[in-house]
């Protein structure tokens, strides 16, 4: 029991940060699935990875407080390439998303290998770490959590109405969509440290894929998605401590059970 308590003290900021992240993501993830754009968070993580690797090249030349905003702006700018590519090459959005994310990941790995960043730090970026989360990271998660609630309350009608109406007279969706993109980017930025670049997108997909089937109202959908995400984080934490396996892997393994539940639900209904 003492060993478990010691482990808890070691991972407490990671756990608290994970719970806040689980709730924050539930405010955006259903909309990603409803827009049939589940690949998007995955692409965003790849672009974010390129941003981290690129900014690390100039890290010594910029004040540390500017690192975070530069990475976010870099990510958002590169993400806009998806829509530019879609617009000018007339590709489908998921095709453009896939192309840009592949280029970003490929370029990031090339830069990493040529600038001696191909080490354990790269490994932690790719797969995350529960232990590596600090009090500062927790506060960042708290800020994103507050942003998520505030922005959801302000903009959710404009996010949801795009699912039911392509166009609404007098309503310009650009601002609301930009806010949505910034919010997902912030959630990914704080989530990558915990879940890793390769696995953070799972938090956006698994729970919502189940709850969209079993709920009929938006409020209950957000609540149910939050609870399932939190459950995933808690069970993942316990399993990773007891069996000494990577945290993000344990979370994904547990959350993949949601897929089975979804199939059973569909079968029963």
């Amino acid at each position: 029991m003492n060993a478990f308590w010691d482990s808890f003290l070691l991972i407490k900021w990671g756990l608290f940060s994970g719970i806040l992240l689980a709730i924050s993501i539930s405010f955006t993830s259903p909309f990603i699935i409803l827009k049939k754009n589940a690949l998007f968070p995955h692409a965003l993580t790849h672009i974010y990875f390129l941003a981290i690797i690129s900014v690390s090249l100039i890290y010594k030349f910029i004040p540390s407080f500017l690192t975070f905003p530069i990475i976010v702006i870099f990510t958002l700018t590169l993400t806009s390439l998806i829509w530019i590519l879609k617009k000018y090459s007339k590709l489908y959005e998921d095709t453009a998303t896939s192309i840009i994310s592949s280029i970003a990941m490929g370029l990031a790995l090339v830069i990493a290998s040529k600038t001696s960043q191909y080490d354990s730090r790269l490994f932690s970026y790719l797969f995350g770490s529960l232990v590596g989360i600090t009090k500062k990271d927790f506060y960042e998660s708290l800020v994103v959590f507050i942003f998520s609630i505030f922005l959801f309350n302000k903009f959710y009608p404009l996010w949801i109405v795009q699912i039911t109406d392509k166009e609404v007279p007098g309503i310009d969706f650009k601002g609301a969509n930009l806010i949505f993109l910034i919010l997902i980017t912030l959630q990914i930025v704080v989530g990558v440290k915990l879940m890793g670049i390769l696995l953070i997108s799972a938090l956006f997909i698994f729970s919502s894929s189940l709850t969209l089937w079993i709920t009929k109202s938006l409020k209950f959908l957000i609540l149910a998605t939050s609870l399932l995400n939190i459950l995933g984080i808690l069970i993942g934490t316990i399993v990773s401590i007891i069996w000494d396996i990577p945290f993000s892997g344990a979370v994904i393994m547990f959350m993949s059970l949601y897929l089975i539940l979804q199939i059973i639900w569909r079968f029963l209904n």
Binding site: P157, V161, W213, K216, S217
Partner: peptide, 27 residues
Amino acid sequence: PQRAGDLIDHLTPLTVKDFIFLSFKIY
């Protein structure tokens, strides 16, 4: 709009009432 109903699928997380009330929320 034309063929408006085509956009709705079985996952859309709104009751009929919530859907209609979207008009109030948008404006």
